[in-house]
Design a protein around this nucleic acid. Structure first.
Ligand SMILES: [Mn+2]
Ligand SMILES: [Mn+2]
Ligand SMILES: [Zn+2]
Ligand SMILES: [Zn+2]
Lengths: 149, 149
DNA sequence: GGAGAGAATGCAAATGGAATGCATTTGCAA
DNA sequence: TTGCAAATGCATTCCATTTGCATTCTCTCC
């Protein structure tokens, strides 16, 4: 048992889930990843790492994690694929570079005031939100500017 | 030819698209709809209206419209279905009631300041964004409050 | 108005991400 | 250690969307 899995063992137990090597492996990969991963990406990484896991297991595990709120799902119109990331219980959003497809996490969130406005104006009680921002990252802006000269 | 289609005829022509009854019918339905529709929803409505259209045609038409920027695509993690709406060229967002699944359009947008912040802090140039807000609508709040008493 | 060319459509089949039924294995509580 | 429920593997299915190809339709040019 790896040291970094010990805390996850407790987490799983608390949620009434059994501890398995696959689950640890998936949690570990999600933890190390800087951006949300598709089931298939995880599957390929797992094959290289754990050897022998089934894609169904990846999907089922991610579903279970999602239902226990350990993992967050998201989807872009881009490709029809769902992406999964560890729920760090921190509020954040993603910047998506339309040029190099990099995802950048940010902590800024502009919803606060709007939330109050909606409550006052139309009595809508906000419980959550999704914000995705598209544009050009620092690198791609540099490249683009150079080409334009 | 219906009166309301005359302007669309010009729009299609300007985009180099041929004018067909299917395209007019789809544009008309999207125009009348208050919230984004799936290809299948459109298909069913079209069957009732135009009689005889093929689902592939619906998809192909929506794709073409999207590429010409007449139509906007969106997707929620919810069900695996993509939704389409007319591009009204007005900036808006949707409130999604998690209780009654109603979609409410709003014009407020809180991105403005954030845009500048991102430019200054990490040189990210925002070109677009998606914001979806979840919560309880006025009606569902009333019902919920009454039940709780 | 009537060709002719190219675009749009219908139809059937394919694709591909995700879900599922069932037999087998595994984790874990007693 | 044993027994049972949960987890997994494997094959199959599901279902939204896409695609190939034959046919039909639009629109331009005469
Ligand atoms: Mn936020
Ligand atoms: Mn906005
Ligand atoms: Zn970039
Ligand atoms: Zn509601």
């Amino acid at each position: 048992m790896l040291a970094e899995n010990i805390n996850y063992k407790d987490v799983l137990k608390k949620e009434g889930m059994k501890s398995t090597k696959h689950r640890f492996a998936i949690l570990e990969l999600l933890e190390q990843s800087e951006s949300p991963l598709t089931a298939e990406q995880l599957f390929i990484m797992l094959r290289a790492k754990t050897a022998s896991i089934n894609l169904s297991t990846v999907y089922r595990t991610l579903d279970t994690f999602t239902s226990k709120n350990l993992v967050l799902k998201s989807s872009r119109v881009d490709d029809g694929k769902v992406r999964y990331e560890l729920n760090q219980h921190e509020h954040k959003h993603h910047l998506y570079c339309v040029s190099c497809h990099k995802l950048i996490s940010i902590e800024e969130c502009p919803i606060g005031e709007l939330k109050q406005t909606l409550k006052n104006k139309i009595d809508f009680e906000v419980t959550g939100h999704n914000l995705e921002i598209y544009g050009y990252c620092h690198n791609c802006r540099k490249v683009h500017n150079n080409n334009a000269q």
